[in-house]
């Protein structure tokens, strides 16, 4: 177990995508066990934050520093970030026909455990765990044998992301608009998956447009991201205030 009392510490992070500056001196600190919600208008940089943190090619950090469990995050290759316990639930999960869900899950969990110096799960052991995870997110077991996200509905893809997250047991989970396109039932399944994973040594960053998700995943902090930086932080009541008032009153503050 890591000893640092900080999960994630972002200092003055600037990032650009295709020469366009998106994040401008963003600061954020997340402690173990906390849930942080990040809200904000379209184009504010919410998804960029998750992409920069997970190391997606094309998202370039140009200044600032990010510490993840006491290590320099930006210095790590994306697969190392994942093995160290950072997980990004994609806004648009990718379909990979011809590679089964199960193959992806076993390969990723094996990689994470090997990195931590832990023994691999046996195929049988892991199959049991995967089936259990399927149940939790209310996906039929046949999804394990199907191609990764192949022909899944929007809701099934998002539940599949949560299933991957459960099996990878990350330290820091970033949910990038996982609620978008979900009906209320799927939303509850996703939320209960997340809530079941809450623990003192695991943190969440929940990126969302809508307050609705936060009725089910109750955050410790709510931040408003506008024009590439956090312009206001508060507790869960801030989300309700945003729902009522919109973002425009805050965007002015950011300039």
């Amino acid at each position: 177990m890591f000893v640092s009392d900080t999960m994630l510490k972002i200092n003055d992070l600037c990032a650009k995508v295709e020469d366009k500056e998106i994040l401008r001196q963003l600061n954020l600190e997340v402690k173990p066990g906390e849930i942080h919600a990040i809200m904000g208008p379209n184009g504010a940089g919410k998804s960029t934050l998750g992409n920069v943190l997970s190391g997606r090619p094309g998202y370039e950090a140009t200044a600032g520093h990010v510490e993840f469990k006491g290590q320099d995050l930006l210095d790590m290759d994306p697969e190392i970030r994942a093995r160290e316990g950072l997980f990004l639930a994609f806004q648009y999960p990718v379909e990979i026909p011809g590679v089964s869900n199960m193959e992806l899950l076993k390969a990723s969990v094996d990689a994470r455990r090997a990195h931590a110096g832990l023994e691999e799960y046996s195929a049988i052991e892991f199959m049991k765990m995967a089936r259990e995870a399927c149940k939790t997110v209310n996906l039929d077991q046949s999804f394990l044998k199907r191609g990764v996200n192949e022909g899944f509905s929007g809701g099934e893809k998002k539940r599949n992301e949560i299933m991957q997250m459960m099996l990878l047991e990350p330290s820091l989970c970033i949910l990038d608009e996982t609620d978008s396109g979900l009906d209320i039932d799927a939303l509850q399944v996703v939320a209960s998956g997340v809530n079941a994973m809450r623990s003192a040594d695991r943190s969440f960053i929940v990126v969302t447009h809508y307050q609705r998700l936060l009725d089910y995943i109750v955050p410790d902090y709510v931040h408003v991201l506008a024009n590439g930086r956090i312009v206001k932080s508060g507790d869960k009541s801030l989300a309700l205030e945003l729902e009522a008032k919109g973002y425009s009153w805050l965007e002015n503050e950011a300039v």
């Binding site: 997970s54 190391g55 997606r56 090619p57 994306p78 697969e79 970030r81 994942a82 093995r83 990004l88 994609f90 999960p93 990718v94 990979i96 026909p97 011809g98 590679v99 193959e103 992806l104 390969a107 990723s108 990689a111 994470r112 990195h115 191609g147 990764v148 991957q164 990878l168």
Partner: peptide, 28 residues
Amino acid sequence: DESLFYLVSRGISEAEARVMLSFGFVNE
């Protein structure tokens, strides 16, 4: 690239991810 990053973001090495994607392409 998007598929490659998806696998890599799960901790899978880029070399293994490339093999998986090539394999998947014909395995269908």
